[in-house]
């Protein structure tokens, strides 16, 4: 089950799961959820089916406290159990803290943190039965604050600790919980930013790897953490940012930038 399944990280994750299963000669069963405000979800389901997967779309608002359990129950029924839960859906909000409204704070924390707890809680019996795994999509903004995006960074920091706590509480049951923290990633949602070639070039230039991530690269990290390959990785937040979050010292004027090293 993957939440936030538009053509971004969530969609890429669904596609990767479907392709990997097909390559192993297995049939993937995937439930993808979104708010339903965009046409992406149905388009994604059609593509998943064309890859040979059983796929179902469910829409709902994760800020509603009853929704996470309802989604999980439907997913468990459709799939006949659950091996993996990807809590990818997140709310965004642009507002400086000085002007942020309480209702917007509450809504963001409900989607970005509370829903992941409730999804995990509802999925735990099925995941215990399968010795499955959870991956929550965090953000490098959970470690470094994103000014003027309301409580986005605060919610992601809380999510990182929630992952660690669930890992402590559910690890003894054989259920692993980890995070993937994407850096700057090109998705259909952010595509418009890259239409301006100058902005696109500037974005690529600030990353040590000199390019932004493709959604598929985030999906590869997520599916790795869901897999048996990651059987002893628990409670971690895997940063997939091309080294960007560690590069602050390169932005100090007058310092030798990495591109001028002598090697």
């Amino acid at each position: 089950m993957v939440t936030g399944a538009s053509y971004g990280i969530g969609g890429a994750t669904c596609l990767k799961i479907a392709r990997d299963a097909a390559a192993r000669g297995e049939k993937a069963k995937i439930v993808a959820t979104a708010t339903g405000r965009r046409p992406d979800l149905l388009e994604l389901i059609a593509e998943l089916k064309s890859l040979g997967a059983d796929a179902k779309a469910i829409t709902g608002d994760l800020s509603d406290e009853a929704m996470p359990k309802r989604l999980v129950d439907e997913a468990v029924e459709f799939c006949g159990g659950l091996d993996g839960l990807v809590s990818n859906a997140a709310g965004r909000h642009q507002a400086p803290l000085a002007e942020l409204e309480v209702k917007d704070w509450d809504r963001m924390l409900a989607i970005n943190v509370r829903a992941t707890w409730l999804l995990g809680k509802a999925a735990l019996p099925a995941l215990k039965a399968s010795q499955g795994a959870i991956v929550a999509v965090t953000s490098i903004a959970g470690t470094f604050p994103h000014a003027n995006y309301g409580p986005y960074s605060v919610s992601k920091a809380a999510l990182i600790c929630l992952i660690a706590q669930m890992a402590q509480e559910w690890g003894p049951h054989g259920v692993r919980i980890n995070g993937v923290a994407p850096g700057i990633t090109r998705t259909r949602n952010s595509e418009v930013v890259y239409w301006d070639a100058e902005v696109a070039a500037k974005r690529a230039a600030v990353v040590p790897l000199r390019r932004v991530a493709m959604a598929a690269e985030q999906a590869a990290a997520i599916t790795f953490l869901l897999s048996k390959e990651a059987s002893y990785i628990n409670g971690q937040n895997l940063t997939v940012d091309g080294g960007f979050a560690q590069s602050i010292m390169a932005f100090v004027p007058g310092r030798l930038p990495p591109s001028q090293s002598k090697m």
Binding site: A164, A167, Q168, G171, G183, P208, L209, A213, M214, E217, Q218, A220, A221, F224, Y232, I233, N234, G235, Q236, L238, T239, V240, D241, G242, G243, Q246
Partner: peptide
């Protein structure tokens, strides 16, 4: 598969390092 992972220290400890409060 790790093509955009750079500079990360991936902890593979089954969550032990985070368990001090226990």
């Amino acid at each position: 598969d790790a093509s955009y992972i750079n500079g990360h220290n991936l902890v593979v400890d089954g969550a032990f390092g985070q368990s001090v409060m226990a």
